[in-house]
Amino acid sequence: MTPTTSQLLETVTTRGNPQIDPSLHVWGWQIVLYLFLGGLVAGIFILTAALELSSGERARTRALGAMPFVALLLLSFGMSFLWLDLAHRFWAWRFYATFRPTSPMSWGAWILVLVYPAGLLLGLGSLDEAQRAWLRARTPGFLRGLLARLTDASDAHRRAVLLTSVLMGVGLGLYTGLLLGTMPARLAWNSAVLGPLFLASGISTGAATLLLLKLDENERRALVRWDLVAIGVELVLLTLLLVGFGTSGEAGRYAAHGFLGGPYTAVFWSLVVIMGLLVPLAMEAIEARRHLPSVALVPVLILAGGLALRWIVLAAGQASAFRLLP
């Protein structure tokens, strides 16, 4: 028996054989949570800034004014998961020694840095007088001057700050999806639609997070409207994603199969589409039509659906490796 031929066959057939090579599942819950929180934070930035831009006045609810800071905390939380996932954790600074315009990871690393000052300015300007006094009292003496200058700057250039926040939010939200598209060997990630899809989902989960707060009625109604639009856009983009896969040749059809009959069919349609999109959509529509009191369950379902979307796209991508193709 010549070893070469039979060994060659053995190797070729057993690639992807679960007993030999279970899967190339290297991105786990850390990345899922990071992408989820990143999208949610992007949504909070876009929505708080957009609310203020459209109404022309600061948030009426105090909790809403503090949300940019909460968003930054959540983002730091998410980034700590990302950092946990890195193989060389203490070389992360190297991202900032360079900038590669063709690399979404490089864009992302820089957006993540720029989001912090933008969020700080957005947040400082959203605080009301009482909150500002509270913050001033708790700031160490040598920083008070800086705080006052930043707050003044934020008030003086409010429109620029708000527009920058929207821009940063859009950039962050898009990046969480486009990041996945950089790996062509992952068939289920090979779509530019993932960027806008994750952005729309981020806006929806951001709105859901804000809806969990006790809000002024006008603010609440505006957020529900934004949420309905975001959910609608998400449904369209999901359809486009699957249509795109289905019409793009063997690799795409393989990726689409994962969601249309393959292993991710049930979880994807049940958790993401039905639980995370259609049921909240129906409930928000019923709420508006029949003037029912809102329930916290709607945002909870949206958040769960958004988490499921990241989890399933991440898992489906890692299960759809190029080498399984004929």
């Binding site: 039979s6 054989n17 007993q19 393959g262 292993p263």
Partner: peptide, 23 residues
């Protein structure tokens, strides 16, 4: 046969096969 999967011990009903990718 080259590339064949063996039924793991304790899995007399070859339950693992049900989970293989149907493509």
């Amino acid at each position: 046969i080259p590339g064949a999967m063996v039924t793991p011990p304790g899995d007399a009903r070859a339950a693992f096969a049900a989970g293989l990718n149907p493509t």
